[in-house]
């Protein structure tokens, strides 16, 4: 591929990679919050994102509400869903020493949701087609897809929102304290269930945001979610488990790696390359690439 390289092409590769990686990043932030307090990797996050994408699809096709506008409905809905799920499924398990229990509940939830989606919406691909789908800005010959740009904006806004929440509100600070040390946090009177539920709800809330982002960019089917969850886990590990900005940056970095790898190498290798990069990061900087910058911030 080297013979085709031009400056514009490199810029385009980077733009594509960043815009693509944002989707991983936004999924990873949710994972990061849930991991922070409950110490589990919430494997069902990808499936929750897809579920929200379907809800978005429903709101769009049945009520004709613009997908971005539907965030007003979807975010509160997913927050509620998060609180509900936490109290019904994870409340007991979260308190246990053995984190595998919570992990497996998540796996069970994933099995269940995937098939439930198939039953409700069938396995045929679903998509949202609006006037701005596939529209792109073309400044200086660089193509920037408008739905992907919106995805980036949504990711940045939600990262900022989550950070503000964690730093400026009482409950947010409690969540942050609990992420650092749950036992001490409990000793100073923070209820573990409350912080867990809040963190989990925000995690699912972010799945709602990601679902809308995904539904506007991609067509999707019920089995789309698991791959997303895997990629989000990698992003999380690259960026630093338990850090919000790190998760977003990790996702973007992963998107870049994939974009470059599938350009310069045959496409089939891109997965192996991103896993290899991720293993190298794990080996040499297991706390993640972007963690220090967070602690400073």
């Amino acid at each position: 591929m080297w013979e085709y390289i031009t400056f514009g092409l490199i810029v385009q590769l980077f733009v594509n990679g960043i815009l693509f990686g944002t989707m991983y990043g936004i999924a990873a932030i949710g994972l990061s919050l849930v991991f922070g307090t409950m110490r589990i990797i919430f494997l069902a996050q990808g499936t929750m994102i897809i579920f929200m994408a379907y809800i978005c699809y429903w709101i769009f096709t049945l009520m004709g509400i613009d997908p971005y506008l539907s965030l007003v409905i979807i975010v509160p809905l997913s927050l509620l869903l998060g609180i509900g799920l936490y109290h019904i499924l994870f409340r007991e398990a979260a308190g246990l020493e053995d984190k595998n229990i919570s992990l497996l509940i998540a796996v069970g939830l994933m099995f269940l949701m995937e098939n439930l989606i198939t039953v409700i919406w069938t396995a045929n691909p679903r998509f949202i087609e609006t006037s701005y789908t596939s529209f792109a800005f073309r400044p200086m010959g660089i193509n920037i897809s408008v739905t992907r740009l919106n995805g980036l904006i949504m990711a940045l806004l939600s990262t900022a929102g989550v950070l503000l929440f964690l730093k400026k509100t009482m409950i947010g600070m409690a969540v942050r304290a609990a992420s650092e040390d749950m036992i001490s946090a409990t000793l100073v009177g923070i209820s573990p269930h409350r912080v867990n539920a809040v963190a989990f709800a925000i995690g699912i809330g972010l799945a709602g945001v990601a679902g809308v982002g995904l539904a506007t960019i991609y067509p999707f089917d019920p089995y789309y979610g698991f791959i997303f969850a895997l990629k989000a886990i990698i992003s999380l590990a690259i960026g630093g488990i338990g850090s919000v900005v790190g998760a977003l940056l990790g996702g973007i970095l992963l998107g870049l790696i994939e974009s470059l790898a599938s350009f310069f190498f045959s496409g089939g290798w891109s997965d192996a390359i991103s896993f290899a990069v991720f293993l190298i990061v794990l080996m040499f900087k297991p706390e993640g690439l972007f963690v220090r910058s967070i602690n400073k911030a």
């Binding site: 991991f35 110490r39 990797i41 895997l230 886990i233 990698i234 590990a237 488990i241 089939g268 290798w269 997965d271 192996a272 896993f275 290899a276 991720f278 293993l279 794990l282 080996m283 297991p286």
Partner: peptide
């Protein structure tokens, strides 16, 4: 040796997951 030496807990879990996926690609390729 490297994974168990460097990684603990969840990091080890995700690391092994990565190894598994790389092995899969090697077989496909």
């Amino acid at each position: 040796i490297p994974l168990l030496h460097r990684l603990k807990g969840d990091y080890f879990a995700i690391g092994t997951l990565g190894v598994g996926e790389i092995i899969k690609v090697l077989f496909v390729k």
